[in-house]
Every structure is written in C-alpha cells, then in structure tokens.
Design a protein around this nucleic acid. Structure first.
Lengths: 205, 205
DNA sequence: GTCTATAAGAAGATAGAC
DNA sequence: GTCTATCTTCTTATAGAC
C-alpha cells in the first residue's frame, strides 16, 4: 500500500481508539514509519487527513450501494429469494449482518470514530444517522417487507417490525464495540432475539 | 451555587458538547466567570474536574438506587401495581422513561459525555454499559416480569421480551441525542413501538 | 519524499500580589 | 479566592538540505 493510503489507514485506527483530538500528527507518522513533517507532503494538515477518511467512506459506500442491487427495480424477482426463507435463513441473515459489521475492520473503526465525533458537527451526525439508522432500516425494511408480502411474516406495520428486528442488533453491536469481551453473550442474545422475533411475527402460520 | 459546583456544571456542559480533549481549562473558567488560574484553587488539574463529575454521578446513582426501592423485597406487593396495568399505562411508562432520560439536563449531558469518552478507558466503558445497558434491562426486566407473572404479558423469555421493549427506546434515544430535530418522529415511532409490543406479547388475551 | 531543525502558537499549570 | 504575569510543555506546521 502506498504511503498516502497507509496514512489514512493508520489515522483511522488511531482516531477510532482515541478520537481526533487525542491523536497527534506524530502518532500517525510513527505508525506509518515516517517523521511527522514528511506527512505534510501527502496531506495539507491534520484535518485534511480526517476529511480524506470521510471522503473515502463516501466512495466506498457509493460503490456498495451500486453493487447491492436489490433495489426495487426487480423487486418481483427478488421477492422469490425471500418467499421461502426459513427460520434458519433469517437467523443466518441476522448473524451475518451482525458479525460483518462487528468484525469488518474498516466498518468497525469507522463506526467507532463516528461514535466519538458525532456531536462535533451536523455533517458527522448526518453521516452516522445515515449509516447506522436510516440506511439499515430502509434496506431491512425492504427485505422483511418482501418476506411479509410472501406471507411468511405478518404485520400491518413493516417499519415497526423492522425496528423490532434491527434495534436489538444495533444495541448489541454498540455494546460489543464498547466491550468486545461481551461478544459471546451478545451472539447468544442475538440468536434468542431472532427466534423470538420469528415467533412473534408468526412465521410458522 | 458555589463556584466549585459551578465548575463541574459548566465543565459537564462543555465535555458533553465537544469531548474532554476539545475543552480547555480557559473555556470552563470563562463560563464560570473567572480566570483559568482561579480554577486551580478548586481543582488540582483538568483531569480532577472530569473525575469529580464521574464521582458526583456515582453518588447521584447510589441515592437514586436507594430511593427506587422496587427491589424484590416486597415484590409481592409491588406486583399489585402492575397487575392491572393497562396499555395506556404501559405507553405512559415508556414515554415517561424516554422523555425523562432524553430531556433531563443532567442525564442528557452525562450520557453524551460518556458516549464520546467510552472508548478511552475500561472504567468509562463499564459505567456506560451499567447505566445504559445492564441497569435499564435489569430494572425493566423486573417490572415486565411482574406484569407477565400477573398474566398480562405472555412469554417464556422475559429477558428477550425486555430487550424487545428497551432496545428500540435506546435506539431512538441515541438518535435524538445526535439529532434533536428528529424528536417528533422518534415520539411517534416510540408510541407505535409500544403499541405493537403490547400486541405481540398478547396483553389483550 | 524523507529527513533535521526550528518556528509559532496553544494549552496546562504555577508564582505571587491583592 | 481571584487576579496578572509567566513558565513549561506539547503540538502543529514550515524551511530547507539531501
């Protein structure tokens, strides 16, 4: 990886552990294996590093949204996938979603950084809300809505049903970010949550 | 209020908005209406101010836990209170809990400060988990458990039922901390959540 | 692009008068 | 207890050689 990229990578690691203000340019340089002044050949100043991390995330996200093309145009076809989704599949979906977001190094670090910085500007608050509130709810709402349309889940309020699915996952995710030792407990709770969710919304009928 | 207390109050406000590292001793002094050096007559250094805030919270919490004496000793008697709890009462309970934690000035500031600082030390992570994960779950589990024992809610897993009650509330709370403009939306969602919770766990049976 | 040397300024904290 | 003046240290950032 070239130096310019490595700077972003090491900066993200440090920002996610200590927060922007507690990380010094020299700390980042140390981890990259250069001296602080050299870093200024790659980025104008410290803030530019932070901004570049945010920009990179926006790019990654745009690409991901592109590839994740279960987007309504062929909802009819996609619904077939979820029509006969077993409880096992729903469990796997939840666990997969949870473990991916929890362990994926980039996601984890970015989420922790945003958690620390979310109150510093409206822009950062908006990014947090988009990534961890509105987008997951919209995406899962679409999926669960299709399952409901296929008659495998029963509700007159898909959005609340989705909240009931996602909020516990979010809750356990933030708990593990704070205290990784509680992951086994979280995984157990996650399984019980999804099974209970399944029963409550009447998949077996 | 005396100066020593006012310092803690203004410091908490600033820490909750910007985080510890972004607040300067001079900022705190400004808000108190003194000069920075005067502040050192009251506290040894900046960190001592932060520690005093944490200590004060621990005291407040100990008192609250004392007064909140629905603690199992007379659970039999307490269960009477919840035995005939109407949907209206459950709605009110959730809304009251939500609005108190959301708007109470001390709670709000302390929660936001901990949100920012939670990754800086195990101690702070533990306090966060206690205050916003384990204690609410334990308390609400006891309450909902009593309602269930009275036959007003039906489940074979009180802890997951409690998670289903609390996680959406936590989710909406952190959303409003980040973006207060979404409070009306959150309150609407909260009501729908509790009504749906009520239906799912079969209160009308 | 990386280095050493260094400037410039910020922020925490102390000294000592009142 | 509060102030002004000041010290010290830390941190960002620049200058200029290689």
């Amino acid at each position: 990886m070239d130096t310019k990229k490595r700077i972003l990578d090491e900066a993200l690691t440090l920002f996610s552990e200590k927060g922007y203000a507690n990380v010094f340019v020299g700390d980042i340089a140390d981890r990259v294996g250069i001296k602080a002044p050299s870093l200024y050949k790659h980025y104008k100043n410290k803030r530019a590093i932070f901004d570049a991390i945010i920009d990179e995330m926006n790019q990654r996200f745009a690409e991901q949204a592109k590839s994740m093309n279960i987007n309504g145009t062929d909802a009819q076809k996609d619904s077939e996938i979820y029509k006969n989704m077993s409880e096992e599949k729903l469990l796997a979906l939840g666990r997969q979603f949870f473990l991916y977001y929890l362990h994926d190094d980039y996601n984890k670090r970015f989420r922790k950084m945003l958690t620390i910085e979310q109150f510093n500007s409206k822009d950062l608050a908006d990014i947090y809300s988009k990534l961890y509130v509105d987008d997951p709810l919209a995406y899962q709402s679409m999926l669960l809505g299709m399952v409901a349309q296929a008659g495998m889940l029963h509700t007159d309020n898909v959005n609340i049903m989705t909240l009931h699915f996602y909020a516990p996952i979010y809750f356990l995710l933030t708990m593990c970010d704070r205290d990784p030792e509680r992951e086994p407990e979280a995984l157990k709770t996650l399984d019980e949550h999804i099974k209970q969710f399944n029963r409550l919304y009447g998949r077996t009928k």
